[in-house]
């Protein structure tokens, strides 16, 4: 029962989705969107699991003082600050004691984490109690900001957007820009071509790079441009199609094996 029921579910829903494809009727469409909505909603519950895992791994690191454990605090504080910012908003013109609130909250978390680790539990619990009193007091008496989990007011919170724009975006953009450096080292790796296949790759890469290079100081020979266009339109098309057919068949075969319960590796039974 424990083992078989999930596979029965897989078969039922898989078979349904297969048959649904041929039924244009409204009710079939209805069930289709219904099921897709379900998967999305389940995904959010899973995200809670994910955050829990992130929290646990970080706390474990701190607990056992593993290498680089200090940075786990950075992760945890980033996580909690962002959640708090995402669910609060400014009511009046100023933020009032909001920053004190956030700091008190971080202090509370810090003390709580330490309380679960350190030997002198009483001290840390006491400290976290103080922090809790402070933050509850501010939350209760300070009217210049509010908590909103009904509306997405928090997403428009300037602090939240600042964090997104000045912390997340620059890091993200830089990581993406690192690609340019890595591509250089990858190109160098490709240059040390050891066999026929790698040389083929390299030659066609160079032809296309010459073609799309905007800084070409000398007039690009017409032949290179035409050759590069031909490469992109002809062999490229052929190879892409061969790969797509292969991938398509792989996906179809794997899906079929999953639906029929032949492939069970994804449930931990291979």
């Amino acid at each position: 029962m424990k083992r078989q029921l999930p596979f029965l579910l897989v078969f039922i829903f898989g078979a349904f989705m297969t048959i649904q494809y041929y039924i244009p009727h409204e009710s079939s469409e209805f069930v289709y969107t219904f099921l897709l909505d379900w998967t999305m909603i389940i995904g959010i519950f899973a995200l809670a699991l994910g955050i829990w895992s992130l929290y646990q791994v970080s706390v474990e690191k701190i607990k056992h003082k593993k290498e680089n454990w200090v940075y786990s605090y950075v992760t945890l504080f980033g996580l909690f600050i962002m959640v708090v910012l995402g669910f609060t908003f400014k009511v009046g013109d100023s933020w009032g004691l909001y920053s004190v609130f956030v700091i008190a909250l971080m202090a509370f978390l810090y003390c709580l984490i330490n309380a679960s680790i350190a030997k002198s539990k009483g001290l840390w619990f006491g400290l976290s109690g103080v922090a809790l009193v402070v933050l509850l007091g501010i939350a209760y008496f300070d009217d210049s900001w509010g908590v909103a989990f009904m509306t997405s007011e928090g997403l428009r919170n300037t602090m939240f957007t600042n964090f997104a724009d000045f912390v997340m975006t620059p890091i993200l953009a830089t990581m993406f820009a690192l690609l340019a450096f890595f591509i250089a080292s990858a190109a160098y790796r490709a240059f040390r071509a050891r066999n026929v296949l790698a040389s083929l790759l390299l030659v066609s890469a160079i032809i296309v790079m010459l073609r799309f290079n905007p800084y070409m100081p000398f007039g690009l020979p017409e032949l290179i441009a035409e050759l590069s266009n031909w490469l992109m339109n002809v062999p490229n098309l052929a190879a892409q199609r061969a790969i797509v057919i292969g991938i398509g068949l792989g996906i179809v075969a794997t899906s079929l094996k999953v639906i029929l319960g032949i492939e069970r590796g994804y449930m931990g039974k291979g």
Partner: peptide, 13 residues
Amino acid sequence: EDTVHFVTQSQFA
């Protein structure tokens, strides 16, 4: 349990 762990749902992070 932490052999498999969650990092974050943001590509570059």
